[in-house]
């Protein structure tokens, strides 16, 4: 039932490294950085978070760089459930989404009922997107059915909100496990009824290693295979550890070269478009970066492209 392809870690790492060898220059660099900015889930997930901190983050998400109003807004602001209302209010009318971690984030070590209630409340408070964690204890013990059932239940609890399933790949350890968890989560989300399942996500950011190129590649391959089988588009969100503009371009190269040849076809089955253009995953609809410090490095690089000088970090607002 939960058969997944095996993954050869050596060749996967080699392939992942190949994406860092692309030379992204001038216009492609600018377009890539703007794209990355638009895909950002600006995140703050700390015990010391306050409403004021969240309001600052929301402002930053709407207008990342006040000196360059032509830049896109970020995709979402990601906060703990207790701060959803604050974010909702601060983002009203901006088009920037409110994302909230739920289901007993980051460990998920809470009774199921409490995890589901966590989700319902966050959605009730106005979250557009829910970032859940899977039950890693059950997964590593081989209780895959239980993991899948829980994902389905969370999906239902999400109601109209969109779901991102965090695999916490740092705790799954092997790429075989990453692939199996990806397949399981994608299937569980899509079989839960309602709208098609939305995102799989690498990490909470609380466990090291968080997002890596190899892990993201394996998850993108799971997404591609699901698409080829069903024609359904599932999103991807690497989170944690992506701090530099250069890294974000490496990830975009990976998306482009792993999913770029795909095009939805009329009959529902996944088609292949040799041109590699018009990729659903090259939009914030289906690809996000979960990061807290990436935004300013992207802005810095964009400013450099525009003005030809490197700005100091204090030239950009913190958030």
């Amino acid at each position: 039932m939960f058969e997944s392809p095996s993954v050869d870690a050596v060749m996967a790492a080699e392939r992942a490294a190949s994406f860092t060898k692309r030379s992204i220059k001038s216009d492609a660099k600018r377009a890539g950085l703007e794209l990355a900015l638009s895909m950002l889930d600006l995140t703050t997930l700390e015990g010391k978070d306050s409403p004021e901190k969240v309001r600052a983050l929301c402002r930053k998400a709407i207008t990342p760089d006040a000196s360059d109003p032509g830049l896109p807004s970020c995709a979402a602001v990601c906060v703990y459930p207790a701060l959803v209302k604050t974010a909702r209010k601060a983002l009203a009318g901006s088009g920037v989404k409110v994302a909230s971690v739920a289901t007993g984030f980051p460990s998920g070590q809470f009774p199921l009922e409490i995890r589901l209630e966590d989700v319902r409340r966050a959605v009730g408070d106005g979250a557009d997107e829910i970032d859940m964690v899977i039950n890693r204890g059950a997964f590593l013990a081989g209780r895959y059915r239980e993991v899948a059932d829980e994902i389905s239940l969370v999906k239902e609890a999400c109601d109209h909100a969109h779901l991102k399933v965090i695999l916490e790949t740092g705790e799954l350890e092997t790429l075989d496990n990453v692939r199996r968890a990806s397949d399981l989560a994608i299937r569980a989300m899509n079989e839960a009824g309602g709208a098609h399942g939305h995102f799989i996500k690498t990490s909470t950011g609380k466990v090291q290693p968080a997002a890596t190129m190899s892990v993201t590649l394996v998850m993108l391959e799971a997404i591609r295979d699901w698409y080829l089988e069903t024609g359904q588009v599932v999103g991807m969100k690497p989170a944690g550890g992506i701090r530099t503009a250069k890294q974000s371009l490496h990830y975009l190269v990976m998306v482009k070269e792993t999913l770029g040849g795909l095009m939805p076809s009329a009959n529902g089955a996944g088609g292949i478009d040799g041109s590699g253009e018009h990729c659903p995953w090259l939009t914030a609809d289906f690809f996000r970066f979960g990061a807290s410090t990436l935004a300013n490095d992207v802005l810095r690089q964009l400013a450099w492209l525009k003005r030809g000088v490197y700005m100091a970090s204090h030239d950009f607002s913190e958030a």
């Binding site: 794209l35 979402a76 588009v233 659903p280």
Partner: peptide, 22 residues
């Protein structure tokens, strides 16, 4: 992309984005 940063619920997404290398 930002202008339409609404997570699409549909399995029939917009034409998607493009990004080519210079």
């Amino acid at each position: 992309a930002a202008a339409q940063a609404t997570p699409a619920a549909s399995s029939k997404p917009s034409r998607g984005g493009t990004w080519d290398y210079a």
